[in-house]
Write a protein that binds this DNA or RNA. Structure first.
Lengths: 222, 222
DNA sequence: TAATAAAGTTAGATAAGCCTAACTTTAAAT
DNA sequence: ATTTAAAGTTAGGCTTATCTAACTTTATTA
């Protein structure tokens, strides 16, 4: 399971597939075009790579068919995800990065090949269960705790909830979240909603804020 | 000086040039073949890359001429070296790697692009001056403390000296060094030398060891 | 169900890094 | 100083990962 030497690019394909299948519950297959959009390359490029990944037994795929990860592919992809999230945690916990600065650097660090490195990092961080964005970190066996989470726009008027994670990890979005004084764990109450333009009025720490539906869809709450 | 986007490969060329020119005192130019040997590629490959590096103003080079780093190239190469040595220090100090395990991983980590990351790492490690092999770490301005060091085989019989660094960073060599109980700072006395086969008899912690000239040439002492 | 749209595939190009084989220039040695 | 050896270069190919443009298959919808 170790020692199958994957390129930077191959690892990115597996990571995308993890996101599109394993992590987006209730879907275990994905199409060429959707994967192309996710990886920001053209479908023709994906098509070529699918043949290679199938050859290496990392994915299940037939001509004109849907794509899914094999067990080997799932484990390899999970390891990349584990590395990404552990590095993000390291950057925030040990190097005082803010949560909106870590994604790009972790995109690079996740491709460092060293089992020992990642296991020691896990230990240094005291085996964290969640990364700075509230996402669960897969363990060394590739197991992940997938919790059912609602997005903020699914919460009813008058209800209170707690921010547990963010969907969008871009610095633009996260800085916007910061501006509202929100952090993982913050309590949010839905004051009211506008029918016409779908805006939400929130109460956070006794202050009122108005946000868009798009914004609310990117916050996971319980 | 920041933001010139260099590839993994280009960075390795600059790092090699730093080693072959700046660090190996009294030589500021190098040839295509020598660089090829150092990078473990063929001279023809180096020749192609020289054109690219010259185009990017990282090296001084004319057809059939010698190669040297420009100021831009020197700074970029120094930054790679700085990253390599800081990461090695991190692995030993924070993740309990032994000094013979760090080189390969640092070869990967040195190519992570993030000025903030490396400066924060420097700070986390308390601005170390030397890496685990006793080599000086360039500062954020690309300045390095080049000290005049002798190798163990240059020491006269009866003299005592102290191990300050190792030349060879391979795990095979470093494990051999470990086996003799030597660490950076160890005191070594030259008991005697064999004329015939150039062996050295050493006294380390009241114990006698016999080592080859090749071995002694890879230990820096003062 | 036949036409059309969407999804997926193929063929042919390009750029980066690498190679081998043949060639040219410079340096060394008789 | 001429020959030979060493160093350096060029031309042409290969692989990986990407692209565009044209084509095929599957799905949708009128």
């Amino acid at each position: 399971m170790e020692d199958l030497h994957l390129s930077f690019t191959e690892e990115n394909y597996l990571k995308s597939l993890i996101h599109l299948t394993v992590l987006s519950l209730a879907k275990i297959e994905v199409g060429t075009n959707e994967l192309a959009v996710n990886l920001n390359v053209k479908p023709a490029t994906v098509n070529d790579m699918l043949k290679k990944l199938k050859e290496k037994k990392l994915i299940n795929y037939e001509r004109y068919g849907k794509i899914s990860l094999t067990e080997i592919g799932r484990l390899a992809g999970m390891e990349v995800l584990r590395k990404h999230r552990l590095w993000e945690t390291f950057l925030v916990e040990k190097l005082d990065f803010s949560w909106d600065e870590v994604h790009e650097v972790a995109e690079q660090l996740e491709h460092i090949h060293s089992r020992k490195l990642i296991d020691r990092l896990d230990s240094l961080l005291d085996f964290p269960k969640f990364d700075p964005h509230g996402d669960p970190i897969p363990n060394a066996k590739g197991e992940i705790e997938i919790l059912t989470r609602k997005t903020l726009n699914e919460i009813e008027i008058g209800e209170k909830c707690r921010l547990v994670a963010v969907k969008d990890n871009s610095s633009a979005f996260l800085q916007y979240v910061n501006k509202l004084g929100l952090t993982i764990g913050s309590e949010i109450e839905i004051a009211s909603k506008e029918i016409y333009d779908e805006l939400l009025h929130l109460i956070i720490d006794d202050q009122t804020f108005t946000v868009s539906k798009k914004f609310a869809e990117n916050l996971f709450v319980v």
